[in-house]
Amino acid sequence: MINAFLAQDGIYLLTVILLGLGLAGIIVCNNYMKKLICMNIMQVAVIFFFLCLGQKNGGTIPVAMDTIIHAADYINPLPHGLMLTAIVVSLGTTGVGLALLTRIWERFGTLEEDEIIQVKGEDEV
């Protein structure tokens, strides 16, 4: 039953729930580090979503072999190639975000948003 559910819409549903949780986390979390982690969760959700599109029943890994010649026997390699790029991009974004958090931590000794607002005043942040 669970296989049938996942094959229909289930996997889309699960990835979109993951996306929603990430987005909600960015909005409600008070800690900047948690916000960054939620951002990563969002990106991973979209990567899963894209990879779902490349799935093919009965397909094997996309490395050409002499014995298998039909295109229908290999899974779709294009989403995998695209998501390599997306993973590297999310890596770069996370790195820059962590560097920014290091600066904020050194200045205030905390990453909690309400404590920083208390120090700096509302409109500065």
């Binding site: 900047y32 916000k35 951002m39 979209v46 894209f50 999310s90 975000g97 958090l101 200045r107 942040v125």
Partner: peptide
């Protein structure tokens, strides 16, 4: 630094939505 971090969060949400 603060504006950049804020822009980073919001901008990545935008990029993710675009990818979706």
């Amino acid at each position: 630094i603060f504006s950049a971090f804020r822009y980073l969060l919001v901008g990545t949400v935008a990029a993710t939505f675009y990818l979706l």
